[in-house]
């Protein structure tokens, strides 16, 4: 038995080795630094105990605000983005003309470089000559409804729309991944099940709820975790569009951590922020893993 266990360990040995060499040291370092006040350069640092954590948790409303804003972006990603991804994956799964073409096209946004994404969306949302405003103006001209032209604004600079605008960019950039993973999941459901259900007289709606959804729960779990981890740690898009502004309206945890590290020269404080953030992400992911295991009909 011991030999068997040893052999089983051999499977994870390469991964553990790499982890031990390249991840453990940075991890220990971040734990260590989180209890110091340090500017990132000086050879001397000041021990402050749990002061950094106390300050983050109790005296840093902007940090918590950034957390909620990231949660809002994540919520939109989880619901709208994944719903869109699922619909598209379902259509592609059933076989559709040009399916090959669609599959390629849906994956263009994730492939595009952040620079292009920033340029394009800054142009779309621009308040003076932006595409979105242009379309709204056209729309209100055709329909004679002034509501549309009243909507015109600098989308990224208006506090009412800035966060949602960013969330939409994130959704646009991210749905390709959800689509891909969901499609892979759907493809692994045996066709015979659907055929059998059809013979039994089930309609498309019933077979979707009775077959597709239960069998897809593990995949939903993966996609949710991927979406949550991706959207909570959103950073590139923010930097290339709003830089966290206007005021604090689009600040997210990562921009706060980097601001503390670079601008404010609080390296230790930034490490503590990272740990607090990590703890939250870890617990959310664990809950989802547990949940999808409980719901999974195959696991029971």
């Amino acid at each position: 038995m011991a030999k068997r266990t040893f052999k089983n360990y051999l499977f994870i040995l390469p991964a553990l080795l790499l982890f031990a060499v390249f991840s453990i040291y940075p991890f220990i370092k971040i734990f260590q630094l989180s209890v110091y006040r340090w500017d990132g350069i000086m050879p001397t640092m000041k021990f402050v105990g749990i002061f950094n954590f106390k300050d983050i948790i109790f005296h840093n409303p902007i940090w918590w605000r950034s957390m909620w804003q990231a949660a809002y972006i994540t919520l939109i990603a989880l619901t709208l983005q994944n719903a869109l991804a699922l619909v598209l994956a379902l259509i592609c799964d059933r076989g559709i003309k040009f399916g090959n073409g669609y599959r390629v096209i849906f994956f263009i946004p994730p492939v595009l470089s952040g620079i292009v994404v920033g340029l394009i969306w800054n142009w779309i949302y621009n308040g003076n000559y932006g595409l979105l405003n242009h379309w709204l103006a056209q729309l209100s001209k055709w329909t004679h409804i002034s509501y549309f032209s009243n909507l015109e604004r600098a989308w990224l600079a208006d506090p009412r729309t800035a966060l949602t605008s960013v969330a939409i960019i994130n959704m646009w950039k991210g749905f390709g991944w959800g689509f891909l993973v969901l499609l892979a999941g759907l493809q692994s459901i045996p066709r015979q099940l659907y055929e059998a259900a059809k013979v039994d007289g089930a309609n498309a709606w019933q077979s979707f709820w009775r077959i597709t959804v239960p069998l897809m729960i593990p995949t939903f779990g993966i996609v949710s975790i991927m979406t949550i981890l991706g959207a909570m740690q959103i950073y590139d898009i923010i930097v290339s569009t709003t830089g966290g502004g206007p005021a604090y309206h689009t600040e997210v945890p990562i921009t706060r951590i980097l601001a503390a590290m670079r601008g404010n020269l609080q390296f230790g404080y930034a490490c503590a922020m990272g740990l607090v953030f990590g703890a939250i992400l870890l617990s959310v992911s664990l809950i989802i893993i547990k949940l999808s295991r409980k719901l999974n009909p195959l696991a029971g």
């Binding site: 553990l16 390249f22 040291y25 740690q233 390296f267 740990l275 990590g278």
Partner: peptide, 21 residues
């Protein structure tokens, strides 16, 4: 969980530690 942790905990200045290593 240990192997998954890097996915969840952003390491500020992780690059600095990596460089030193």
């Amino acid at each position: 969980l240990l192997l998954l942790a890097p996915m969840m905990i952003p390491i500020p200045g992780g690059f600095v530690a990596l460089y030193v290593l």
